[in-house]
Amino acid sequence: MKKFALIGAGGYIAPRHLKAIKDTGNDLAVAMDINDSVGIMDMHFPESEFFTEFEDFAAYVEDEALKGNKLDYISICSPNYLHTPQMKFALKNGIDVICEKPLVLSSEEIDTLKVYEEKYGAKVNSILQLRLHPSIIELKEKVMNAPEDKVFDVELTYMTSRGKWYLKSWKGSDEKSGGIATNIGVHFYDMLHFIFGDVLHNEVHYRSETTSCGYLEFKRAKVKWFLSIDSKNLPEDAVVGEKTTYRSIDIEGEQLEFSGGFTDLHTQSYQQILSGRGYGLDDNRTAIETVENIRKQIVIDDSMNKHPLFYKIS
């Protein structure tokens, strides 16, 4: 049985980590969140220590290590901009990390964390659960079995409506969240890289606080993408059906269906990590470089590769 800590226990994704720790037969020794609405812990680990200040959490972790109760893993589900400093804390204390996406906000942080890994002998593991989804694995095999010169035409559309609170939270700050493409899209870019190979070309056609779209060329695919949290951009069929989220990955006229199958992907991710087969720093580099470039590069308006929904917002 491994001893875990969880940072960000009050967040949206934390229940999946709590369940994964429990389902893999391990123990949550301590959790931390600046918010104290963490009753979900009682379903899994009612005896865990809990702190609302990081300094108190850090002191507890270090004091317990001196008593011979060193943690094996710290799972991180905190806001994006806190991932790197919190991973540094874990690594400096010789504790392995399991961190939610986006792992970091810049490729430079990946390089820094590699130095920490080498110096302190601990390892960073990331949650890239789409790589474990059966439909994604099936598509990857289809691409691998296609003629080597085959390049697929893909349209990625993802909209998840958010209220006014979003832009007033840390998620509305590019410095803290990385912006729309990072916050709601990084796992899609990793999935595309996982299936279609290296990124060869990257264009941004529109970028605002709520919406971004562009074009990515991979070794095996040309991808027009559109991401938004603005409900005004939802297609008519979604509005009529009173849906607040719309997701479509069209591959040459065929829809990639992966709306189901998510239930146990975090648990599967933990199983892989615990068996030494987790996704590490270098596995994240392409997706992080992709969103970093999307955030920084100049928007162009003369491309022939625009997503159809670009014309709805332009």
Rank of each mutant, 00 (worst) to 15 (best):
D230V: 02
N202V: 12
W165K: 12
C213P: 05
M159D: 06
Y158H: 14
E203V: 01
V223G: 00
V204E: 03
F194A: 04
L234G: 02
F194K: 02
V186I: 14
I195H: 01
E175L: 15
V199A: 10
D198E: 14
S177R: 05
G197A: 09
L227I: 09
L156E: 01
L156W: 03
T182I: 13
Y189T: 12
K232A: 13
D174F: 06
F188Y: 14
H205N: 03
H205W: 00
P235D: 11
R207P: 08
T160R: 10
R207C: 08
E236K: 14
R162Q: 15
V186E: 13
K224L: 09
L192W: 11
T157R: 00
H201S: 12
E236S: 15
R162C: 04
K176R: 15
V151G: 04
T182P: 10
V204S: 05
D190V: 07
Y158C: 12
Y215P: 01
D153Q: 15
T160S: 14
A238H: 08
K168N: 15
G214H: 00
W165C: 11
K164S: 14
F152D: 05
E203T: 02
G178K: 02
K222I: 02
I229Y: 00
Y215Q: 03
T211S: 05
G197Q: 03
F226Y: 11
F218H: 01
N202P: 07
V223L: 13
F196M: 09
S177P: 04
A181S: 11
P235V: 07
S228C: 04
D153F: 10
T160V: 11
E155L: 12
V151R: 13
E155K: 05
T210E: 06
K224S: 09
E217G: 05
M159H: 10
E217I: 04
F226S: 03
V199H: 11
S228Y: 01
P235N: 14
K171H: 12
E175C: 13
L200W: 08
N233D: 09
T157V: 10
M191S: 12
E236P: 11
K164I: 14
S173G: 10
L156H: 02
G197N: 06
F194V: 06
L216N: 12
F194Q: 05
L216C: 12
C213A: 07
A181H: 13
D237A: 10
Y189C: 08
Y215C: 05
K222V: 01
A238F: 08
K168S: 15
S169G: 07
Y189F: 15
D174V: 15
E155Q: 15
L192S: 08
T157G: 05
T157N: 09
V223I: 11
S169V: 02
Y189N: 04
G163L: 03
F226P: 01
F188L: 13
A221Y: 00
S212M: 12
S161D: 09
F218R: 00
D190H: 11
N202K: 13
T160M: 13
L156P: 05
F196T: 01
T157C: 08
W225N: 00
K219M: 12
F196Q: 01
G179F: 01
S161E: 11
N233S: 07
S228M: 03
L234M: 08
L227A: 00
Y206T: 01
S208M: 01
L192H: 09
